[in-house]
Design a protein around this nucleic acid. Structure first.
Ligand SMILES: [Mn+2]
Ligand SMILES: [Mn+2]
Ligand SMILES: [Zn+2]
Ligand SMILES: [Zn+2]
Lengths: 147, 147
DNA sequence: CTGAAAATGAATGTGATTTTCAATTTCATT
DNA sequence: AATGAAATTGAAAATCACATTCATTTTCAG
């Protein structure tokens, strides 16, 4: 069984919350960790199903919610369908509306400016989303559709 | 008829696009301009309906899309339902997840940092969303639900 | 080994938005 | 003012992603 660290983290979360350790959850975590980038529930379901034909969509769906709660996955919504990525240090995204490419960025200056702004309003920030939509370098030249 | 400037802008957009000037569109724009803040289609529909009982939800819905295309309205989606605001200079938002209050902010430093980041990837930004979710000053103290 | 609690998954529900389509309205042209 | 092609309207139905239901199966503490 691969991904020992994450599997143990999941097991620990399940124990702490009186939830059960099932083969489905283990399998879905495995497949998720092998998938790259920012994957939709549907794509993840297809990937899961290719190895474990009996696992249902609902279980994949619910498990991704669980992995988010456990801090192992992060959910984003760039275009109306949720996408999941392996949790890692905070970052924001550039999203190419032509080819779908997603570039991650982080900027301490922006983060601190955000905090200053919120503080000036006495506002406590719990989370934020900062996404730049447009065309990536590769998509600049080609003359296709899309805005 | 109030809101002459905006009504004329709409009329101009309609002409330029071979669309027709209808009483519904005029009425919806009027009601929209009188509504304050960031209003949902549903709330706008209720407001429209109180003055023009015959106007249907679909028309309100479609007209708001039209007003966005015409540059008179901006659409945002903070929580799963679209909200519209009267178009004005660029800004981003602080959203209180307890009371729903929306505070607007603008930060030239953030905007230019964004542009630098995009440029470093050869990325052309067409639009962006930057939203800070949390609790507003008034909601900090009270002990209610919600994350 | 047992049984209570949780999980599964197929089916169904939900809520916002979008589309369909027959009837109505607009408006450039007679 | 009359005509008619094209656009609009609005009630109803469809769509889409997501959420819930519930009968059955599985987990796991005792
Ligand atoms: Mn990411
Ligand atoms: Mn605003
Ligand atoms: Zn691209
Ligand atoms: Zn508040």
């Amino acid at each position: 069984m691969a991904h020992e660290v994450e599997q143990r983290a999941l097991a620990r979360y399940l124990e702490e919350h009186s939830l059960k350790h099932t083969k489905q959850r283990e399998a879905i975590l495995d497949v998720f960790l092998e998938a790259k980038g920012h994957i939709t529930s549907e794509d993840l379901y297809q990937a899961v199903r290719s190895r474990h034909a009996q696992i249902g969509y609902t279980t994949v769906y619910r498990t991704m919610k669980l992995l988010c709660e456990a801090g192992l996955a992060h959910e984003h919504n760039f275009d109306g369908t949720a996408r999941y990525e392996i949790a890692h240090e905070h970052h924001d995204h550039l999203v190419c509306t032509r080819c779908g490419k997603i570039i991650e960025f982080e900027c301490e200056m922006i983060e601190s400016a955000q905090n200053r702004i919120a503080a000036s309003y006495g506002f406590r920030v719990l989370r934020h989303r900062h996404e730049l939509y447009g065309h990536c370098a590769e998509c600049q030249t080609s003359r296709h559709s899309d805005s």
